[in-house]
Amino acid sequence: GIPATNLSRVAGLEKQLAIELKVKQGAENMIQTYSNGSTKDRKLLLTAQQMLQDSKTKIDIIRMQLRRALQ
């Protein structure tokens, strides 16, 4: 079985993952909103794209940590 310490770690990672998935969803929504907007929305679009990139990276890292914890 999986050690108890790993189980609480997994629960924490799953919570983090859920949050990051919401951030990713929000960033994707912002990108959709701003991509057909005016030029003043360009900065917001770039910010949203950066957020999305960061979020995807975090999600990958969390998933990797989850896999390790579940081994």
Rank of each mutant, 00 (worst) to 15 (best):
S55L: 03
S55M: 02
E28P: 00
Q32W: 06
T5F: 10
E20A: 08
S35P: 03
I19K: 11
N6W: 05
M51T: 07
L13C: 03
R9Y: 15
P3M: 06
K43M: 08
K58Y: 01
I61Y: 09
T5Y: 11
K22C: 13
I31D: 00
I59W: 00
G37C: 13
K43H: 12
Q71H: 13
A27W: 14
A4I: 09
K40H: 11
D41I: 02
D60N: 11
G37F: 03
G37H: 04
L7A: 15
L70T: 06
R67T: 09
L44T: 03
L21E: 03
Q49F: 10
S35H: 12
R68K: 05
L45T: 01
S8P: 07
A27Y: 12
D60F: 15
Q65H: 07
I2S: 11
Q53I: 07
K22A: 10
R67W: 10
N36R: 08
R42H: 15
L7Y: 06
E20L: 14
A27Q: 02
I19E: 15
N29F: 09
V10Y: 04
Q53V: 11
R63N: 05
A69K: 02
D41G: 03
M64Q: 14
Q16W: 07
E14C: 15
D60V: 12
Q65R: 06
Y34I: 08
A27F: 15
L46R: 08
N29C: 14
K24Y: 13
L46Q: 10
Q32C: 12
Q25L: 07
Q71K: 07
R68L: 15
K56M: 11
I61M: 14
S8Y: 07
R63M: 14
L17D: 00
L17G: 00
Q25R: 09
L70P: 02
I2L: 09
A69Q: 03
R67P: 01
K56F: 05
L21Q: 03
Q53L: 09
A11Y: 08
E14F: 15
Q25M: 07
Q49E: 06
A48E: 01
E28M: 09
A69H: 04
M64L: 13
Q49H: 06
V23Q: 07
E20Q: 15
M64G: 08
K58V: 02
L7I: 10
K15L: 10
I19Q: 09
V10S: 02
I2P: 09
K56A: 04
L66K: 01
I59S: 01
M30F: 05
I62R: 00
E14Y: 15
T39R: 05
R68Y: 15
A27N: 01
K15E: 05
L17S: 00
A48G: 02
A4W: 03
Q16V: 03
K24A: 08
N29D: 13
K56H: 04
E14Q: 15
R42Q: 14
L45M: 05
E28I: 12
A48W: 09
L7W: 02
L70E: 06
Q16I: 10
S35W: 10
A4K: 13
A11H: 05
P3R: 02
K40N: 07
Q32F: 04
Q25V: 06
R67I: 10
L66I: 13
T33M: 14
Q25F: 05
I31E: 01
L17N: 00
K40C: 10
Q71M: 11
T47L: 11
S55C: 13
Q71I: 08
Q32E: 07
T57M: 13
R68V: 14
T5A: 11
N36I: 08
K24L: 15
T47Q: 14
L70G: 06
G26M: 12
Q25H: 07
T47K: 14
G37M: 06
L66D: 00
G1Y: 05
K22L: 09
I62P: 00
P3F: 08
I31K: 01
Q71G: 08
